[in-house]
Design a protein around this nucleic acid. Structure first.
Lengths: 225, 225
DNA sequence: AAATAAGTTGCATAGAGTGCAAACTTGCAC
DNA sequence: GTGCAAGTTTGCACTCTATGCAACTTATTT
């Protein structure tokens, strides 16, 4: 069994059995949902299908997610939550746009992007997904807003709600734009070259924001494929 | 019946009986939905309630909208569609940000804003609405994207997908931000002073975008209430 | 005034989503 | 370990959404 030493609990990580079970169930659900998406295509399977595949009851599914969409969107949520964590790790006195750029670039690794890329690829041609995916991005926007407000609280004019709202929204929009362009260009390609392009797109997108979209050809050199 | 003169069809406006009926039904549905929202609150009425109030069958409701949310979101759609029309009226060689600003400011009149303001007020405290409303904004974003792409097609670097996507998304985000701040400050207030503030917020939001969010205190003077 | 196209309605049915109570698991104290 | 309290799962019942289909009504054309 587990070790019997008197734990000092230095770390804030006491994953009890219950929590582990819940996490496992949650994971089983999203895995099952993704697998059904692969095999049957978007919109061609039900909550019951997912529950069966995950080895739980229909009712339990709804204890975790409110719809099939929500189960799949948890992939997007997972990705964006990581982005927020990265953002919070940046020094508080760094300019927001630089922090955002750094946080996004840090996320451009295969491990984090792969599930998202597959999800995008599988749901590209059907608008059946959009609902909950948009919500995931908006949820992330709200969190960027919170971070930005905390940071700017002390600075002159930092109380300006419009500034903070507009900034958070634009950051998200530009991040989304970079992702979208990348998916359109590369599909599910996760090679180092492709990921380097994603990083460059994210950098360019933030640069566009920082330069006020001044010139149709952005100053920082873009790839020339 | 209609006039019997040999129509030359100079104008693109032959509103037939059928079209009028459809428009009327559509309007009756959204009116009924809004009235139920007022009286019962968000989430406390069904499609059947709306259909009864609008004097149509439940089934017919679904011929027009796919959900109660969608019926209400048609108000948002209506508003944003007007914005796109305004945007298309701007000269094609005007900078996008200026066009967007002008289009949005043109929309800040009581007639256009009133339904939106009421909808926002009624759904503020409940996230029950978000789904379809987010979709409406995203639909508008896609249209801004189209306009921007058409305009920039000839300009140097205008082929840059990233630029166009990021620009369209940011414009929408900033418009949304201005609206949100305004609703938060003023609620359903439609007085000239309040609308003037909305206009100023929209102008400021676009200015933030144009100046790359350079200074936490935007250069153009904001209201000082 | 037919003939035809377009729109509405009721019926049937599959599936989403939720409240409830009974059963089962896990954590904790003795 | 025994036992109890709190947390989870599950089945059941029920309401509501959403769509296909066929019969019916209304507008348009000739």
């Amino acid at each position: 069994m587990t070790d019997l030493l008197p734990q000092h609990d230095d770390e804030p990580a006491p994953p009890s059995r219950r929590e582990l079970n819940k996490a496992a169930t949650r994971q089983a659900i999203t895995d099952a949902a993704l697998e059904l998406l692969r095999s049957k295509g978007p919109g061609n399977f039900t909550v019951e299908d997912i529950a069966d595949a995950a080895g739980i009851s229909r009712r339990t599914f709804f204890n975790y997610f409110s719809s099939t969409d929500a189960a799949l969107a948890s992939i997007v949520h997972g990705f964006l939550d990581k982005a927020i964590i990265q953002l919070r790790l940046r020094p508080a006195d760094e300019p927001m746009l630089e922090s955002a750029q750094a946080a996004l670039v840090a996320l451009a690794d295969p491990k984090a992007v792969a599930p998202l890329a597959e999800l995008f690829t599988l749901t590209q041609q059907s608008p059946l997904m959009s609902h909950t995916e948009l919500e995931a991005w908006d949820h992330c926007r709200a969190q960027v807003f919170t971070v930005a407000r905390e940071r700017l609280a002390g600075t002159p004019g930092g109380q300006d709600e419009l500034y903070v709202h507009a900034l958070a929204g634009s950051i998200i929009s530009c991040g989304k734009a970079a992702m979208e362009v990348w998916f359109n260009r590369r599909g599910p390609d996760l090679t180092p070259a492709s990921l380097a392009e994603l990083r460059q797109l994210l950098i360019d997108a933030m640069a566009l924001l920082a330069t006020g979209f001044n010139t149709p050809a952005p100053p920082s050199a873009t790839r020339s494929s």
